[in-house]
């Protein structure tokens, strides 16, 4: 899920970094003081989520929580994901430092998709919560697979789609569980991204 340096062309990574920094400014500039504690906690959760691994099909995949970030933060999910990815790269060596922008775009897009799914009215909340978690990580994986396909790298997009569809199901159930918990314990937290 976290693209390492040396896989995608340096020029593409630099362009993605520039786009990401622009998005970081655009989505983060109107952040209010009241948003920051929530963003800090979500950033911490995203940061450690990557440590929960699942060995599968000869590789290793991990939780992302991008859909949950979208539900709880809306557009503020992007700056949080960017910072979490930066520290994951520096501290855990998950993903390359130069590729942070590209990874942030992939995963930020997943979070935005999760947020849009969550905002869709009329559909029961449990289905929206599961779908947000499911789509959040699957879209990020799909974008990464497309980038690999274009670069001609790796074992193919179908392999990535296969392993991440399993991760997406796990993530969907986890997101649903967390949302159900918030609904019972602190329902106002779910109104933020709406």
């Amino acid at each position: 899920m976290h693209i390492a340096d040396g896989i995608i062309a340096t020029e593409v990574c630099i362009a993605a970094d520039a786009i990401s920094l622009g998005a970081l400014y655009a989505f983060g500039k109107k952040t209010e003081a009241g948003d920051i504690p929530r963003m800090g906690f979500m950033g911490a959760a995203l940061f450690v989520a990557s440590l929960i691994h699942f060995p599968i099909a000869g590789t290793s995949i991990h939780l992302g929580l991008y859909g949950l970030a979208g539900i709880l933060l809306g557009i503020r999910a992007f700056p949080v994901i960017f910072v979490a990815l930066l520290f994951q790269s520096l501290i855990f060596q998950h993903g390359g430092l130069l590729s942070v922008g590209l990874n942030a775009i992939n995963m930020g897009a997943g979070a935005m998709a999760g947020w849009l799914v969550w905002k869709a009215g009329r559909i029961p909340e449990s289905i929206r919560a599961f779908s947000a978690g499911f789509i959040g990580i699957l879209l990020a994986a799909f974008l990464m697979a497309m980038e690999f396909q274009i670069t001609g790298y790796g074992r193919g997009a179908f392999f990535i789609a296969y392993i991440y569809s399993i991760a997406a199901a796990v993530e969907g159930v986890l997101t649903l569980t967390i949302i159900n918990f918030f609904r019972r314990a602190k329902p106002d937290i779910l109104e933020y991204g709406k």
């Binding site: 920051i36 504690p37 800090g40 950033g43 450690v48």
Partner: peptide, 12 residues
């Protein structure tokens, strides 16, 4: 992990 969490909360 603890170091990273400290940094994130510190920045927040």
């Amino acid at each position: 992990a603890i170091w990273g969490l400290t940094l994130i909360f510190g920045i927040a």
